[in-house]
Design a protein around this nucleic acid. Structure first.
Lengths: 204, 204
DNA sequence: TACCGTGTTGTCCATGCGGACAACAGCGCG
DNA sequence: CGCGCTGTTGTCCGCATGGACAACACGGTA
């Protein structure tokens, strides 16, 4: 049925299938048979690549989260542009995976560790951007670390409203995220976009 | 084994057991046998009170969310006190239920409807408090509806960090929540508590 | 007291699960 | 050419699940 493949390719294929099934059914309801069917493969093959169901799920989420992180620009153009960029909602499916992972974290130490690692990474980027903006005089934020945590939490909470509950739309998400960021940085309405413009053309 | 009881009492007892099991195992992993064991009852009895597993879970979450809502003070002492109060973290178990429900919502229209109802209710209270504060001159918020949505989302996001990931502690939660609220309302640090004090003694 | 309604139980069933494993197939090396 | 390594399959097992149901127990009523 399924042609023989290079182990690494096959492994990645299985992980991608697992991500798709997790997004569709939720972590707890994922079945090895579902994943195998998604990949077009006998379910026994999964045992050949992963020791257990738990291993597969953790590896799958780690891959998906890693790809999300890789999509952020490697060298952010400017602090304001970085924060402004994070105010744009992601493609639909991604955040549902995160929300599901949150709910699973209290019962899966391994998943919790992966989640904490990725959240820390995002937060560190935001913290760096806020400090850099302080240094460049774009804004004056007395508590960059706290503001970074609050900013990331704000995005997560808005994502719940947008992706899980459909109580806001993508434009509302972006508007409220920008407004919250401006509040945290002590900027007025439109201040973030203005700061980004100011950075794009260093000297007026 | 279990003594005969009044139907309403027994039903409430089963729902409370279900809430406990949901909090412990997560929605998707809840077993009728788990719930029955938690309640000290034969699992067949659940069929006597609920048509299906889905019915039981939805009714259980609705009960828990309703009880959470009932714990909010009936007539908020003052707008500032209301918002300040919501910045205090809830008892641990409650929010895990909410996070789990978010992740289940995209696959359960009934649960999604219950969630939207309760979120709307909380948000409406915050919106009212913000408008009332505007009217009393405690602060000046140009977009109360947006601020209410953002405030609730901020609390939800911080709850994820606190309850699911343990990346902040209860004090950090309260501090960041207050700070975010002040940002949304255009108040300086400590401005919320100051407004609450000012309200407690109407005229200096 | 006898009886009936109903809350409660224990058991049964079909289904689907994760995991184990023996057998098969095809490629590359000797 | 033959052979072994390994990716792949299909099948089997023990087990837990949601649901169905007949039998039981007990309180209220006649």
């Amino acid at each position: 049925m399924a042609a023989r493949k290079a182990p690494e390719d096959r492994r990645a294929e299985l992980l991608r299938a697992a991500v798709a099934v997790i997004a569709r059914r939720g972590f707890a309801a994922v079945t090895l048979r579902d994943v195998a069917a998604e990949a077009g493969v006998a379910h026994g093959l999964l045992r050949h690549y992963f020791r257990s169901r738990g291993d597969l799920l953790a590896a799958a989420f780690d891959l998906a989260a890693g790809e999300d992180a890789a999509q952020l620009p490697a060298s952010p153009p400017s602090p304001a542009a970085h924060l402004l960029d994070r105010c744009e909602p992601l493609p639909d499916q991604h955040y549902l995976l995160w929300i599901d992972a949150w709910s699973e974290a209290p019962r899966s130490p391994e998943l919790a560790a992966i989640l904490r690692r990725h959240h820390s990474s995002c937060e560190r980027a935001a913290d760096g951007a806020i400090r850099e903006g302080n240094a460049r005089g774009l804004w004056s934020c007395p508590d960059p670390a706290g503001a970074a945590t609050a900013f990331e939490a704000q995005l997560d909470g808005l994502a719940v409203q947008l992706y899980a509950l459909h109580r806001i739309d993508r434009e509302g998400y972006a508007r409220l995220a920008r407004s919250a960021a401006e509040g945290l940085l002590g900027l007025g309405p439109g201040g973030l976009a203005a700061a980004a413009d100011r950075e794009r053309v260093p000297a007026t």
